[in-house]
Design a protein around this nucleic acid. Sequence first.
DNA 1: AAATGAGGCAACCGCAGTTTC
DNA 2: AGAAACTGCGGTTGCCTCATT
Length: 314
Amino acid sequence: MLGVRKRICSPKEEESELRRGPWTLEEDTLLTHYITLHGEGRWNMLARGAGLKRTGKSCRLRWLNYLKPDIKRGNLTPQEQLLILELHSKWGNRWSKIAQHLPGRTDNEIKNYWRTKVQKEARQLNIEANSKRFLDAVRSYWMPRLIQKIEQASYSSSLTTLDSLADREVRSTSSNLPVHNSLPTLLCPPESRFTHYSNPGSENSFSVTSPYLLSTNSNTISQQPDEILENPSCSPLLGDTVCNNLILSDTYNKEGSSYDMDGFNVASAGMGTHDNSPLECQVAEGNWVFDSMEDTLWNMDDMWVFRDLRETGI
DNA sequence: AAATGAGGCAACCGCAGTTTC
DNA sequence: AGAAACTGCGGTTGCCTCATT
């Protein structure tokens, strides 16, 4: 495709000068500075304008996957992992589409996560990662485990909150904060494909009737009715009873509310009963990342359970 | 201490769709 | 209108780091 458009130099000349491989700090600075002044877009022109000996593609990739200010760093949170699993089960390898629902995460990062973590586990278990069997396992075992992790983290954080309140001698004023009587028990017999949580001590009890479908727009999560409705296949799998104070999303709000990402639903404090209203979450931004948690989706318990699952032939 | 292997991730490639001239 | 350039996406590669032998 030889250009009709004006070129500063011929493609061959240009190509011979092009740099490849890892970006240097100087290149990063040049790119960031140029984009700060002139904005994104027209990447080939931008590359030349910034004085970078890189292709426009390379600049775009570097910016979108690494330099852009709102990019999140660090391990994926259990919530994010859960969302990835759910959305992947729905859309497959549509990484950019999935990434749109995880603010600050890039398609590349999600793709890498899937390939290094999820596919690896599937390989080790001799299951095709895109098979229905694997999908069932993910939905029946690993998603609940993640939810459990999320709730446990929530529980810990609420304890921490209470402790810190106590330290400040104001605990008595916050007696309305719910305290879990017990952690949820995962009751998930191998023969069942459904997920059940129970927390006998909790008065709050909900039913999950649809996938944990959350969509994001900027920094908010909003339920997207169409997407949920177009995915009836997910509902039966997740139409399970969940007790306790935790549910990720589910019944979309017919009034069309949206939720703050920071409020992404690990419902703990102040949760009412489920009455088809959107569930809200009291997890503050600082708790969104569970540093102490394993960054991997699977742990040894998961593996043990899954081997059990294999034997039972799901 | 050196060699080896695995994991993680940034970057590249090829293709398809869109935009620009 | 059509060719060229641009953009975005998904798949793949290769390099770096760290753990293990």
